[in-house]
Amino acid sequence: MSVNQGITLKVENIHKTYGREKVLQGISFEVKKGETKVIIGPSGTGKSTLLRCVNRLTIPDAGRIWLDGTEITHPRTDINKVRQSIGMVFQDFNLFSHLSALDNVRIGLIKVKKMVKGEATEEAMRHLARVGLEDKAAAYPAELSGGQQQRVSIARALAMGPKLMLFDEPTSALDPELIGEVLKVMRDLAESGMTMVVVSHEMGFARSVCNEIVFIENGVIVEQGPPEVLFEDPQHQRTRQFLFKITELYGKSERK
């Protein structure tokens, strides 16, 4: 456990305050290579802020973060370089509206990774195929369903060849019947050995896919552990209450 080897992400004592509101108050955790971690917690407890701190879209007030031994929080780290190795998937997709699905996936390869166009196209198509959307390559975001848009956004992140994928409530803006297709892509991704941190209340997904659930409330980690332990034998009353509430809301088993 204490051996540094095999640890992809290490987060140490992150603090973040907005105005007078202390959003994060000393969060620490580690994610091993190939592991999937699911973060849960009531809304407004800083889960999204935490994810954004990891790729420095939000700059934490204190604390340090390492990706594969490189300190992200070090001021001299080239953050644009680091971000290429951290894929991020947003709640509301944030696809580039003026670009087709293919161009959404390809633009990072061409403009950031400086790939030649032909090569970038091949690579982008490969990732669109991976999320089952090669036939939608020419469609613009407005012509895709929410589920399809989210899969394109996953492909966009994957195309950059990340070491770590962050998912910020990837299914909560979706109609219920579209959630399954996105979760399936995420499950396949986890099984293929991708290291992932997922903020989600899809407990079915958490149970069947993730290695560890982290329960955050009021900016601190209340409890973390393997899903079996947290579901069957939580140490804290709060964890029990919260899990009860969200399983009521979202259901226990994974949606198909």
Binding site: N55, L57, N80, M88, D92, F93, N94, K111, V112
Partner: peptide
């Protein structure tokens, strides 16, 4: 949407790009 700016930054684009 501001989200698109964020998404672009998240794949490593500079602000200018």
């Amino acid at each position: 949407s501001r989200g698109q700016m964020m998404a672009a930054r998240a794949i490593g684009m500079s602000r200018f790009k």
